[in-house]
Nucleic acid binder design. Sequence first.
DNA 1: AATGCGTAGTACCGTACGGTACGGTTCTAC
DNA 2: GTAGAACCGTACCGTACGGTACTACGCATT
Lengths: 215, 215
Amino acid sequence: MNEQAPINLEYSTVENAPSAREQEVLSVVLDLMVEEGDGFSMASVAKRASCSKETLYRWYGDRDGLLTSTVQWQASKVAMPKLDDANLTLEAFSDTLNEFASSWLSVLTSDVSIALNRLAVAHAGNNKSSLGQIVLENGPYAMRTRLLPIFLKGQKAGLIDVRGDEAFRLFFGLVIADAQIRALLGDDKKPTKTEIKKFAQSAVEQFLKLCGSKN
Amino acid sequence: MNEQAPINLEYSTVENAPSAREQEVLSVVLDLMVEEGDGFSMASVAKRASCSKETLYRWYGDRDGLLTSTVQWQASKVAMPKLDDANLTLEAFSDTLNEFASSWLSVLTSDVSIALNRLAVAHAGNNKSSLGQIVLENGPYAMRTRLLPIFLKGQKAGLIDVRGDEAFRLFFGLVIADAQIRALLGDDKKPTKTEIKKFAQSAVEQFLKLCGSKN
DNA sequence: AATGCGTAGTACCGTACGGTACGGTTCTAC
DNA sequence: GTAGAACCGTACCGTACGGTACTACGCATT
């Protein structure tokens, strides 16, 4: 999914990590999602992955299970970014936020993330599966979980002054703004690398201006 | 699946306001969208609207035509907010933005809006229809078109100092933040009326703090 | 060599749904 | 009053797809 993973329990144990062959299958599913959205059939997966439908059903139970495994696998692939350490300068704090924001925007506007989020949004609408919840937990919630400690460090270092949940909402808004929903709706004007850099930098500046405890 | 709809010309012209009977049908479609997402069938529409499927196909050509008409009808219902007039005080400007923000957040987190956006996002993924474009134009783009004149007036009155497109992105982010995507993904923690008020007020404050030309 | 497991490939089944056809009824215009 | 259109209700058709069953084959262990 668009973001990283506070690791999925089913895959957090060693023996549940997908094998190489399974990863081939899941990778095919991701490709098909990007190409065709939710419309791809089990047969198309089997054909492109050179496996039988029976195998798909034995491994994943049903279509929803396959989708769920794919989403969780993708979530598990995003690496956890390392935080910065003890004595924190405004410079380092700002840089960390900046890098985080850039990476976040890049991921959210990537083809895979868009396809995954579209799928999750669609499934959240047909009360058919829990993909919406899964993406929600591995997307916005995970980002929040990751950012809060950073904000906390910034606050302890006296660099910002704001409650954590407000800080997250503010940071999300400044960084992402309308980029994600526009991408999901099919806006073809996707931000370029340089625009992303610019957005991120601007967002961090604004964030610090609003939350900075300089005054 | 089906390619082309023999689009009813009466609905493609300007004076295409749906009749009362048609509004009954479209209203049923909206209800079913909220209840079942994209999953409802033409038969279910016909049954609940007490009309025949043949009528649906005669009026709308195909399923996509029905969805398109519904989306456009819903879009046409959103009233244009009136701008404020000539000599502009900071107070009035701020109030206008505040009301706009509240209303915007309310709409975006309403059941109907969520259902429509889910549908549009899903269809933007299955390159099957142009619903994504339609919602994009009647959603973010329309909001932008509506806000830009307001920003311009504020700028001419010396209340803010920022380029229009940047102002829109900033305002969107501050007001909406993660509310819409969370709602689309099925987050059950929808903002209450009072939270919306608070978010809007806070967003406008922050907007003015960042764009205010007082310094 | 024989046995057995896992899987590819494919044929098959049931169902749901988009779209059409048609008989019967109501509304409208002349 | 009558013709014709619109419309309701329903039966029907074709197809696509989820899911299952079955066969054949590769490969390992014995």
